[in-house]
Design a protein around this nucleic acid. Structure first.
Length: 200
DNA sequence: CACCAGGGTGGTT
DNA sequence: AACCACCATGGT
């Protein structure tokens, strides 16, 4: 990783747009999820009330570029209805982290990783997002690899406690993982920047 | 042409 | 609990 530092991770014009992106990017390259987001924006549907009442067939047509467009359209409308029912993101913001996570996990299409990504990037809660890159990284980095995602989460969250730092950490892991970590061993610069206060 | 991309769900063993 | 098929498009 040549350029440690803010990764301009998860660019979006609103918090709800981040939630929509979290679903659209599942098993999909960001460039294609981004196209779908642009089309939703042009259609005025990056708004939970508007999206909640939009026909699924309309949403399907707009998000086709992101792949899995039928299941994702269903998930997006369900997500929008959830936010509308709750009375908006400012209402959900009031909830405690565990009940907010439980509410998100009940939604169709929101698994462990997407729930944690939303907690971190939408609600700014101090959560470490365990994804395939993080598993590979820590599996190789530590002598005894974490045996579960829960263990890995606890390990990292026990050290990195600030939401802003967990945000940056996840961004660095994914940005680096995409470039190097799939087939090659970790390179020497594969950890946090040297000026970082945290040590594993 | 094969493989991958910032996963989740439901079914089978 | 560990697999597996499926969802589907666009890039390399």
């Amino acid at each position: 990783m040549r350029h440690h530092g803010p990764q301009a991770w998860w660019p979006a014009e609103s918090r709800f747009e981040v939630m929509v992106g979290a679903v659209l990017v599942q098993q999909t390259a960001w460039v294609n999820a981004s196209r779908a987001i642009d089309r939703l924006r042009d259609a005025g549907l990056l708004d939970h009330d508007a999206l909640a009442s939009a026909p699924r067939s309309t949403v399907e047509g707009l998000i086709r570029a992101a792949g899995f467009y039928r299941v994702k359209a269903k998930r997006l409308v369900g997500l929008a209805r959830f936010v509308s029912r709750a009375g908006g993101l400012s209402m959900l913001q009031q909830l405690g982290i565990s009940e907010l996570r439980a509410a998100l996990r009940e939604l169709d299409g929101v698994g462990a990783e997407t729930a944690d990504a939303i907690l971190l990037y939408v609600f700014e809660r101090p959560v470490f997002v365990v994804d395939a890159y993080a598993r590979r990284l820590f599996g190789r980095l530590t002598g005894t690899p974490p045996s579960s995602d829960a263990e890995l989460k606890a390990l990292v969250e026990g050290v990195v406690t600030q939401a802003a730092d967990l945000n940056e950490l996840h961004a660095l892991i994914v940005a680096h993982g995409k470039r190097f970590c799939r087939t090659q061993p970790l390179c020497a610069s594969c950890c946090l920047r040297t000026s970082c206060q945290y040590r594993f």
